[in-house]
Design a protein around this nucleic acid. Structure first.
Lengths: 179, 179
DNA sequence: ACCGGCATGTAACGGGTTACATGATTTT
DNA sequence: AAAATCATGTAACCCGTTACATGCCGGT
């Protein structure tokens, strides 16, 4: 799935600028299963405009560059649906943190600790992000995906909290006193 | 984390050929949080050999090309540990299936059905893969990572089974009869 | 007979990340 | 005073995927 399709999907949620599309992938409903960067969004929007899949309204602004708000056209909507009507590729996950924790016995325990806590915090942050989304009037399938993300992350948090002793062999010490 | 580090990690589990390293990322303990392809493994092994991080033993074989079995050197082990002693990047997940399910209401229900069932099957397959691994004599941190993967996938399966009605609006019909 | 598994490797192509370039305004 | 937010865009580079090239063996 290329960056253009990702942009079309973001615009299915409503007109938006490139900047706002990026936020959708950071804080919005796609945050837990996709990510993009400006370097791919802006060129994609350019190509989509050429192809007639989106139109662009420029709003002048004080000081800042003009805000370019993109809207889907019928052809864009059709292209989006067509792009989604293929066999999906398998999920691709890359987790450096898990790779590090796997090799925890080789690493400095301070570092392992940081990685562990950082990962936990990341999971909590992701749940918060999903929980902050407004669910009013959202279709069941969208709620399903949100719920799936939450279920995933919650299971991860629960597991980590219950099994921290497997990676961190200092809990008894660091919990009480430091000497 | 580049492909070279990934190869070093695979070799930490024992000497292996490029072909076997790939299997480690497909069926082995890394399967759920990383993936690679021959196109990146073979060149990486070449570079690592040049750098002295691995050595290579060639075993002649009947018919097949020689099997090149790589082993870590001390310098390789040190390089690996150094590569892991940095702040990990955030997990990167890309799930085309979830993207499709999010937009289920736009898509042909037959296709949605296929995506849903395919995804569920994929989760089950992942759990099976993790369950087939031999846990004997494995360090706690490695078991932790395995358990994390299982907890993740199990939560996903449970959620999908309990909430299928949110995406699939044909369960009552298709469950009983087909007319 | 054909497909899948074993086994290594190269090359091109595509694509995305990162960094750079610019700059005002608001928050800390 | 510095950092973050808003806002767009380009370019280079890295790197990985995909496809190609080759070939035997075992199972169906």
């Amino acid at each position: 799935m290329d960056s253009k399709t990702l942009c079309l999907g973001a615009l299915m949620l409503g007109d938006a600028s490139g900047y706002e599309i990026k936020k959708t992938f950071e804080d919005g409903p796609f945050s837990f299963f996709h990510q993009t960067s400006f370097g791919s969004i802006y060129p994609s929007l350019g190509k989509l405009t050429e192809q007639g899949h989106v139109t662009c309204d420029e709003h002048e602004q004080d000081g800042r560059p003009d805000k370019k708000v993109y809207s889907l056209t019928d052809s864009g909507r059709a292209a989006f649906i067509k792009a989604l009507t293929v066999k999906p590729k398998h999920d691709r996950i890359r987790s450096e943190s898990m790779y590090m924790l796997f090799f925890a016995q080789l690493l400095d325990s301070g570092h392992v600790h940081k990685v562990f806590e950082g990962y936990l915090q990341g999971l909590r942050h992701n749940i918060e992000t999903l929980s902050n989304l407004n669910d009013d009037g959202i279709s069941p399938s969208r709620l399903f995906v949100r719920g799936f993300g939450k279920a995933f992350y919650e299971a991860g948090i629960k597991y980590m909290e219950e099994n921290r002793h497997m990676v961190l062999n200092d809990d008894a010490v660091s919990a009480g006193e430091k000497s």
